[in-house]
Each structure stands twice: as structure tokens, then as C-alpha cells.
């Protein structure tokens, strides 16, 4: 019993880490596109292209096990949070208190989704037939 629980937990952690990684690459993509100024600056344009491939690859890997609706929301959410946090570092942007509250809302929602997603796994694990309904 203990062994199967541990294995299921580690199985579930993987896709979520890959999904967060996809979000991180999405941030790199967004910042690169911003820096490329309409793909007129070569270095930023190449960087944008590489991040574009990486983010979609990781998203695709994560979506093998995570529902697409959840995966997309988390992907977009992490991307938005990262861009808002790193924007002020690279470009002339500001992070005001109102935006900080929205960041907290997004992060809270992502954590909630992770818990809701794991809950489904537990339900499937303990009940033999897939009787889970909305």
C-alpha cells in the first residue's frame, strides 16, 4: 500500500514539474519576443524561436497526463506571472501593488489546481471503476 502510494506521487509530480518548466520557457519566449522589437533584432529573434520550441515541447509532454484545460490555464498563468516579475528586470516596466495581488491570485489558483488534480488521481486509485463525475 505504502509502495504504490509513493510511486503514484512521484508519477504525478513529474508532469507538473514539466508543466511549470513549460511556463518558465513561455516567460523566456514572451520576453524574447518583446526584446526582438517585431523580430528585427537577430539575437532576441533566435532566442524567441528556441523558447517557442521548448515551451510547446514541455507543454505537450505535460499534457500526456494533465487535462488540457488545466494544463493551458497553468501554462498561461505561470507565463503571465513570470513576465510580470521579470519585465521590470529587463525592460522599463513597473510592478505595482495591484499587479502583485493578481500575481498572488494566479499562484493560488495554480496551487489549487495541482491539489484538485492530485485528488482525482487518489479517487481513481482507491475506487476500482472510474465513477468520478463532475
Amino acid at each position: 500500500m505504502t509502495v504504490t502510494t509513493t510511486r503514484n506521487d512521484s508519477k504525478k509530480a513529474g508532469p507538473w514539474l514539466v508543466l511549470l518548466l513549460a511556463g518558465a520557457f513561455e516567460v523566456g519566449y514572451a520576453l524574447s519576443v518583446g526584446g526582438s522589437e517585431g523580430f528585427t533584432i537577430l539575437g532576441w529573434s533566435i532566442s524567441a524561436f528556441v523558447f517557442f520550441l521548448l515551451t510547446l515541447f514541455c507543454l505537450s509532454v505535460a499534457l500526456k497526463t494533465i487535462d488540457v484545460g488545466i494544463g493551458y490555464a497553468v501554462w498561461a498563468g505561470i507565463g503571465a506571472v513570470g513576465a510580470a516579475l521579470l519585465g521590470p528586470v529587463f525592460f522599463d516596466e513597473a510592478l505595482n501593488p495591484v499587479r502583485a495581488i493578481w500575481l498572488a491570485v494566479i499562484i493560488g489558483g495554480v496551487v489549487w489546481l495541482k491539489l484538485a488534480d492530485s485528488l482525482k488521481l487518489d479517487a481513481q486509485k482507491t475506487t476500482p471503476a472510474p465513477v468520478w463525475s463532475p
Binding site: 488545466i70 490555464a73 498563468g77 494566479i106 489558483g109 495554480v110 489549487w112 489546481l113 484538485a116
Partner: peptide, 19 residues
């Protein structure tokens, strides 16, 4: 989706819109 997932998606997307 069950209501928990739908609510979570709503919170995250709502947060992105607010941001």
C-alpha cells in the same frame, strides 16, 4: 471537469485577466 478543476481554471484565468 469537476467543480474543483473548473473553479481553479476560473481563478487562474481570472488572475491573468486582472493582471
Amino acid at each position: 471537469l469537476n467543480w474543483r478543476k473548473a473553479l481553479g481554471i476560473l481563478i487562474v484565468i481570472g488572475g491573468v485577466v486582472g493582471l
